[in-house]
Amino acid sequence: MAVRILIVDDDELSREVLSLLATGAGYEVEAADSGDAALEQVQRVRPEVVLTDIQMPGIAGDELARQLRSLCGAGTMLLAMSGSELEEGVGRGFNGFLLKPFTMETLTATISSGLIRVEDRPADADDVVLDEGVYAKLAGSMRESQLEELYALCRKDAQVRVERMKEAASVGDDATYRKEAHALKGGCGMVGAVELQRLATSMEERGLRDDDVATLKEFVAASERLRRILIARESN
């Protein structure tokens, strides 16, 4: 019988990618877009595993883990995930932590062995535009048309968030700027857009600076490089 996993992520792209990959890996997948939705869902369908982003608006982090545990009991494995390293003392309510992006093999190994901490990051990420390993796994788990739609969704989502970041920068809204950068980091990481993920990580960590416009322009240029690479893949 397939393991039932509930994927919780407020970022639509990350949630969609994870759901597709987990389904392809043989899991029975449910999804929720917030901690509140997850708490409602586990009362209807009890999952064996809950995989949740640890940084979301509303109920999240260790408080979400505490409430999930009270509803699901000790028999459900609670796994946290994030595009950033956890701060000391954060995540203690979970059985394990996965650093985005991660493979289904990593997830399966974590579930099987109960590892407390797992990392699966591409080497030399600063010199890479597209993680070939992530791309290959996505290509192997869906039809070509679905793969094209997925990356188109990634680039469209990035364009929308960059515009929001420009608006935030124009009014000095550092919190919104960082929030959108965090969402970009997670979504880009899940599809192997390594250069975009690295830039988004930098923007989130730095926040608004005098060079924020230049950084956003660099992100747009990197998005164009990714587009050209994907076109080359599709033509081969």
Rank of each mutant, 00 (worst) to 15 (best):
L107N: 03
T108A: 13
T108H: 09
A109N: 12
A109Y: 08
I111T: 00
S112V: 00
S112D: 08
S112R: 10
E119N: 10
D120K: 02
R121A: 08
A123G: 13
D124M: 11
D124A: 15
D124R: 14
D127R: 15
V129K: 02
D131N: 05
D131Y: 02
D131G: 03
G133M: 01
V134A: 12
V134R: 13
V134L: 05
V134F: 02
A136K: 05
K137N: 04
L138W: 09
L138D: 03
A139G: 00
A139R: 10
G140V: 02
S141D: 02
S141Q: 06
R143P: 01
R143H: 11
E144K: 09
E144A: 13
L147A: 06
E148I: 11
E148V: 08
A152F: 07
L153C: 06
L153R: 12
R155H: 07
A158H: 10
Q159D: 11
Q159A: 15
Q159E: 13
Q159R: 12
V160T: 14
V160Q: 10
E163H: 14
R164L: 11
R164I: 05
K166W: 10
E167Y: 05
S170A: 15
V171W: 03
V171R: 15
D174Q: 12
A175R: 11
T176V: 14
Y177Q: 00
K179R: 14
K179N: 07
H182T: 04
H182W: 09
H182S: 03
